[in-house]
Design a protein around this nucleic acid. Structure first.
Lengths: 112, 112
DNA sequence: AATCCATGGTATCTCAAAGATACCTGATGA
DNA sequence: TCATCAGGTATCTTTGAGATACCATGGATT
């Protein structure tokens, strides 16, 4: 049993030491919420994501996708075609995270 | 009809010009999500909020509450007692926003 | 062949926000 | 009197967002 487990037996987003804080930080973020929403209906390429996430810079898009990939929410697949093609898609975990994020976006669109 | 309305007839979080982007930016934020959750069960004072939102600095707490107040999600009430007391509470809009945010926190605690 | 565009990025710079820390005012308590 | 608590503000550092430029590759255009 690690120190973290001792200090965070159950996941609690209100606890500083809880690793789930990282996940909250990742999802409670404008670009993550929009990116995951954009991928809800299927895989997309970098360029299409950039068009849908109006106003995002290439650097921030790249960072956001890498972070989502590192947390197991998104996969990045390079197709060995000519020219090569890169696709981003939600994992099962990502699809599951998409549900509460869609509720949040819907609330915002309905109440802003 | 304003320019904004022309460019954003319906609320669309994916549109740069849509004012609802501001609201998404506000709610899709770690501290906002935690603060609104903390206030779900009733008004709290600054000190109690600071204790519950482990790791938040006084400056960021103050800023977060001001931003939530400016967007009509939270009220700040100063009671003319001795010593004076300051309470923060959710507005009706804030209570309504608390619902999708709770789903998000629950997802994070269940899947992190 | 030379030019142009699209894709999928990286590199660099600036500036705003987060975070850490110190400090302040006013009241209460030992 | 000294220390403590509440509810902040002021200041500084560090981080991240955002804007912009650039690059390599591979068509398509002229």
């Amino acid at each position: 049993m690690t120190v973290t487990e001792l200090q965070c037996a159950r996941n609690d987003v209100y606890a500083t030491m809880c690793p789930c804080r990282d996940m909250l930080d990742l999802l409670a973020n404008k670009w993550s919420a929009l990116a995951i929403g954009a991928l809800e209906d299927g895989a997309l390429r970098n360029g299409e994501l950039k068009r849908r996430l109006e106003g995002i810079s290439p650097k921030v898009l790249s960072q956001t996708l890498k972070r989502l990939e590192a947390h197991g929410l998104v996969t990045r697949t390079v197709y060995a075609e000519v020219p090569s093609r890169v696709e981003y898609a939600l994992t099962e975990l990502g699809q599951s995270a998409a549900v509460p994020l869609k509720h949040l976006r819907d609330w915002v669109e309905g109440n802003a």
